[in-house]
Computed example of a mutant assay.
Amino acid sequence: MTQSSFVPVFDGHNDVLLRLRRGGSNPVNAFLQGEDAGHIDLPRARRGGLAGGLCAIFIPSSDQPRPENVDFVTPAQPDALNETLAMARLLFDIEAQSDGAVKVCRSAADIRSSIAEGRFAAVFHIEGVEAIGADLDALYVLHQAGLRSLGPVWSRSNVFAHGVPFRFNSTPDIGAGLTDAGKDLIRACNELKVMIDLSHMNEKGFWDIAKLSNAPLVASHSNAHTLCPHSRNLTDKQLDAIGESNGLVGINFGVLFLRDDGVKNADTPLEILVRHVAYIAERIGIDHVALGSDFDGTTIPQALGDAAGLPKLIDALRTHGFDDQAIAKIAHENWVRVLEQTWGG
């Protein structure tokens, strides 16, 4: 690992809040002081150059641990709202007790200043908005609390849309498009300038959002379907639409979404991850590819290990031929640009 490998990374997706929520009695301390679990805490983030990212609030289905290739039961809305509020409070408690080391960012300027000052730049994101009812009241309240990004669905249906199930050797063209409530949600997100995350969205829902939304199209943690034919990945046509909207794709580190054989094998070389970066950069441009690790939410290559291993990925990108300018765009600049365009500053 070279000194030049230490590049600030702003990451499009992690599930650290859920891991902490399910963990021990002092989750705030576990994040701030570090622990021998999962992929992210503040000490490992600092060692690896992880400068921040979208911190997802995800409500598991009642049938956890979740098996593959199953349509999951949607949590009840009151339970989902209570859990969402609990994890949001955990994020705010981490910020409050961090002595300035963590900032919940509500603007691109917040992210830029946090990176420059060495703070962990956390963005309040919801993955699967079962906490929000069709009346959208909770959306407006959560936005006031700091919500700046959401994925309408995880890989299950709700009142807004249909998530794509986990299926290998399958297209994402599974299920119907947005409901009427879902169309209202997209319009409201545009009004509030909340980023809409297309990861986990099925193909018909993707195209409905592409027609309705006036914001850049973003898939925070998805890969190239051409290289790995998993239903969670993006077809070339979807990639083209993202590029044409001036949006981006955050590359998912999960081996299930990287490998062409669909096997959950942590012994997956980083070069396979880099191959997805290179494919998307070549197809739609270097300005439209970034990182969306899915740390604490999936099995990642053991060669990377956890957030402290990010310089190994930077080395792998450099070995592939990406220069310093391209690496800076992939690592953080593209995310900040798209969020600024979406949020309006």
Results as ranks from 00 to 15, higher is better:
residue 181 A to E: 05
residue 14 N to A: 12
residue 110 D to T: 12
residue 263 V to F: 02
residue 61 S to P: 02
residue 35 E to K: 11
residue 77 Q to S: 10
residue 147 L to Q: 04
residue 7 V to A: 08
residue 218 V to T: 08
residue 202 N to K: 09
residue 91 L to P: 10
residue 113 S to A: 11
residue 251 I to H: 01
residue 71 D to P: 01
residue 212 L to W: 05
residue 72 F to N: 09
residue 139 L to S: 02
residue 137 D to Q: 11
residue 131 A to S: 07
residue 33 Q to A: 14
residue 196 I to K: 10
residue 289 V to D: 02
residue 23 G to D: 11
residue 74 T to H: 07
residue 144 Q to H: 12
residue 75 P to H: 04
residue 302 Q to I: 06
residue 102 V to R: 12
residue 105 C to W: 02
residue 138 A to S: 05
residue 111 I to D: 01
residue 44 R to G: 14
residue 238 Q to E: 06
residue 106 R to M: 14
residue 119 R to W: 00
residue 183 K to A: 05
residue 50 L to V: 11
residue 257 F to V: 14
residue 264 K to R: 14
residue 10 F to Q: 11
residue 81 L to Y: 09
residue 25 S to D: 14
residue 271 E to R: 15
residue 294 D to M: 10
residue 189 C to R: 04
residue 199 S to K: 00
residue 162 H to K: 01
residue 84 T to H: 01
residue 338 V to L: 12
residue 154 W to S: 03
residue 103 K to P: 01
residue 312 K to G: 03
residue 315 D to V: 11
residue 121 A to C: 10
residue 308 A to W: 09
residue 17 L to S: 04
residue 22 R to I: 05
residue 46 R to T: 10
residue 96 A to F: 01
residue 207 W to E: 13
residue 9 V to S: 02
residue 201 M to K: 11
residue 160 F to Y: 12
residue 8 P to N: 04
residue 200 H to K: 07
residue 260 D to R: 07
residue 107 S to W: 10
residue 142 L to Y: 14
residue 130 E to N: 10
residue 309 G to M: 11
residue 174 I to V: 15
residue 294 D to P: 01
residue 204 K to P: 01
residue 138 A to Q: 08
residue 76 A to L: 03
residue 62 S to M: 08
residue 218 V to E: 08
residue 255 V to M: 03
residue 147 L to N: 06
residue 47 R to Y: 02
residue 121 A to S: 10
residue 175 G to L: 01
residue 235 T to Q: 12
residue 191 E to I: 06
residue 171 T to M: 11
residue 261 D to Q: 03
residue 11 D to Y: 01
residue 151 G to I: 00
residue 119 R to C: 13
residue 268 T to N: 06
residue 258 L to A: 07
residue 132 I to L: 08
residue 9 V to P: 09
residue 242 I to N: 13
residue 301 P to H: 09
residue 309 G to T: 03
residue 312 K to S: 13
residue 287 D to L: 09
residue 188 A to Y: 02
residue 253 F to P: 00
residue 254 G to Y: 15
residue 44 R to K: 04
residue 342 T to H: 13
residue 148 R to Y: 05
residue 71 D to Q: 05
residue 216 P to R: 07
residue 316 A to I: 10
residue 264 K to G: 03
residue 336 V to E: 14
residue 320 H to K: 13
residue 197 D to Y: 06
residue 274 V to K: 00
residue 153 V to A: 05
residue 57 I to S: 08
residue 187 R to L: 15
residue 222 S to L: 07
residue 302 Q to K: 14
residue 75 P to D: 03
residue 85 L to E: 14
residue 215 A to T: 08
